[in-house]
Structures are given as structure tokens and as C-alpha cells.
Simulated scan of single mutants.
Amino acid sequence: MIKYWPNQQNIHLNNAIVELFFEIEKKLVLNNYNKSNQYLYLDILNTRTRTQLLQYVLSEFKTLVLDLIEINLKHETLNKFSNKIEKIFIYKTYEKFIKNFNCTTLKHNKNTILDCENKSLIEYLLTYLIFGSCKINHKIFIFEPNYTPYHQVKILLEHFIIEIGNNITKVIINSLTNTHNINSFLKRSNICNKLYTSNRSIILFTNNLKWQAFIKSYIYEVKSLYNERQQIWIIGQEGILTKYIYISREKESKNLKNIKVIFILWLEIKDLFIPKIEKLIIQIFKYFLYCSINLFSNTIIILVKVMIFYLKV
């Protein structure tokens, strides 16, 4: 039986939120290894630190939700300022997390944090948690708002926590400016993943992340936009995995760069003409095969007749 998320503010919504946070809290302790085929900045942290960071994110997010409920924020206001809310949230969580480390170079990175892209879907997540599913635009997701599965909100929260934790780690890495500083800081703070204890391994790690970001931005993101879906991070039984969900991305499509528009145009052309070209090639191949078989058969028959003729002679 499908469990649905409450569609309005009431005691059922409050209970669902408590249950949701409790479930995620347990998952963060047990399953925060990256088991996807993609790199995360979080990968450079050891298990203890990664768990601690994600728990900070969850704890601060609980506080954020309670604060927004307390000030009785309107849904329209939430939609308008969701991007700013996210960036302020990242900054506050970042500040709290780095207090564990005595490193002056990690301070005053507010501008860097404010440049983070909004990929956490915080607008929809906060809407579900504060107002219930009735306030979600019916065009956004594949199902009717009043019949939003509980699991949908759960994976949105998992994605949010991992995305924010990853952004915070990214800010830390970028603020250290070079490989030597990164390596020194990680070792001195005892937060380094054993896979990345040398300068060379850190260089490879950061280069892979940059290349992945480039490919993702100009190819996979555009394809996802074209197909109206988005990759999200989820916490499975094995660890952190990726999954695609359907989501309307009409707003994003209006702000595409020229090169991305060209790529989408190419996808349109490909979808229109490639199937027809494939059919044509298959048809030509069938005719060629048919003619080849006939030619071969006729050649054999002629050879047999010639042999019979000479045998009679």
C-alpha cells in the first residue's frame, strides 16, 4: 500500500515530519558511503567527518523548518526567497562545521558560498514540509500533489542533505586554494579519507571533479533538461546512489546559454531524424541481404547445371 504525504498543515503533517527526520537520521549513520559512479567532494572526508557534516546539515535544517513555521511564512514568499534561504542556510551550516577546525583560511568565504548553484530542490522540499503537498504546482512532478508518495519527500530530503554537505565540502576545498594546503589541512585535522592522503591522489580527485562538472553541465544536465528529469542523490541500503526523477524544468530552459540551446536543438533533430534514418538503413540492409542471397542461390544453381552439363558430355 502506498503511503502518501499529508496535503495540508495539521497534526498528520507534523507526525510525518518527525518520522521522516528520524528515518534520515538513522540512515546517515549507517549508509553514507558513495556507491554511485560519480565523484562527490564528500568523498575526500573520512567516514566520521562525513557523518558529522551530514548530521550538522540535518540538524540545522530541522531548525530552519521550525523557524519558518514559527514566522508563519507565506508560500509565495517562500518561493520568492527560496534561493536566498538556501545560501544563507549553507553559510550558517558551513560556519558551524568549520568551528571544529582551527584553520583561519577557512573563514570569510561567504561570497564563495553565495555563488553555489541551486540544485538542492529546497523550494519543493520546504513546501512539502511546511504547507503539505497541496501547495505544490501540479505541473512540477509526475503525480497529483494530493497523492504525493511519502517516499518522494523522503528522497528529496536525502538529496538536499547530500547536496548541501557536498557544497560545504566544495567550499572548504576551494578555499584552501592549492593541493599542498588541502593535504596539510586534511591530515592536520584528521578528517582525510585514506584514499586521498597524497598530493597526487588529491590532484587526480580534484581534476576528476572538475571534468565531471564540465561534462555534467554541458551534456548530462542539458539532456536531463530536455527529458524533463533531474538526477538526485539518495541514501540506499548500500550507501549514496544516484537516481533520476521526473520534474518540470521550464524555468531553467528559459535561462540556457547558447551552446546548451544548440545541444538541445541537436537532440531534437536527433530524435526526429535518427529513427527514420535507422529504418532506412535497416530497409536497405534487408534489400541488400535479399539480393545477395538470391544472387548466391542463382550462382549455385548455374554452377550445378554447368557441372551436370559437362558430366553428360
Rank of each mutant, 00 (worst) to 15 (best):
Asn199Arg: 03
Ile202Ser: 05
Ile203Thr: 03
Ile203Trp: 01
Ile203Phe: 03
Ile203Pro: 01
Leu204Cys: 05
Leu204Thr: 12
Asn207Arg: 04
Asn207Met: 02
Asn207Thr: 08
Asn207His: 08
Asn208Gln: 06
Asn208Val: 09
Leu209Ser: 01
Leu209Thr: 01
Trp211Met: 15
Gln212Arg: 04
Gln212Glu: 00
Gln212Phe: 03
Ala213Met: 10
Ala213Trp: 00
Ala213Asn: 09
Ala213Val: 05
Phe214Leu: 15
Phe214Thr: 14
Ile215Met: 14
Ile215Thr: 10
Lys216Leu: 11
Lys216Ala: 10
Tyr218Thr: 07
Tyr218Asn: 10
Ile219Glu: 06
Ile219Leu: 15
Ile219Cys: 10
Ile219Phe: 11
Ile219Arg: 00
Tyr220Phe: 15
Tyr220Ser: 12
Tyr220Thr: 08
Tyr220Gly: 02
Val222Ala: 07
Val222Arg: 13
Val222Gly: 04
Ser224Cys: 05
Ser224Tyr: 09
Ser224Met: 08
Leu225Arg: 01
Tyr226Cys: 01
Tyr226Gly: 03
Tyr226Phe: 12
Asn227Gly: 04
Glu228Met: 04
Arg229Val: 03
Gln231Phe: 14
Gln231Pro: 03
Ile232Tyr: 01
Ile232Pro: 00
Ile232Glu: 04
Trp233Ser: 03
Ile235Cys: 12
Gly236Ser: 15
Glu238Ala: 09
Glu238Gly: 03
Gly239Asp: 03
Ile240Glu: 10
Leu241Trp: 08
Thr242Gln: 15
Thr242Met: 06
Lys243Phe: 06
Lys243Met: 04
Lys243Pro: 01
Lys243Asp: 04
Tyr244Asp: 12
Tyr244Gly: 06
Tyr244Ala: 07
Tyr244His: 05
Tyr246Arg: 12
Tyr246Thr: 15
Tyr246Gly: 04
Ile247Val: 02
Ile247Trp: 03
Ile247Lys: 07
Ser248Phe: 07
Ser248Glu: 02
Glu250Gly: 06
Lys251Cys: 03
Lys251Val: 03
Glu252Ser: 05
Glu252Arg: 13
Ser253Gly: 15
Ser253Cys: 09
Lys254Gln: 07
Lys254Val: 02
Asn255Thr: 05
Asn255Lys: 13
Leu256Phe: 15
Leu256Gly: 14
Lys257Ser: 14
Asn258Gln: 14
Asn258Arg: 12
Ile259Arg: 13
Ile259Val: 13
Lys260Gly: 13
Val261Phe: 07
Val261Pro: 09
Ile262Asp: 11
Phe263Ile: 14
Phe263Asp: 04
Phe263Met: 11
Phe263Thr: 12
Leu265Arg: 14
Leu265Met: 06
Trp266Ile: 11
Trp266Glu: 06
Trp266Val: 10
Leu267Arg: 08
Leu267Gly: 03
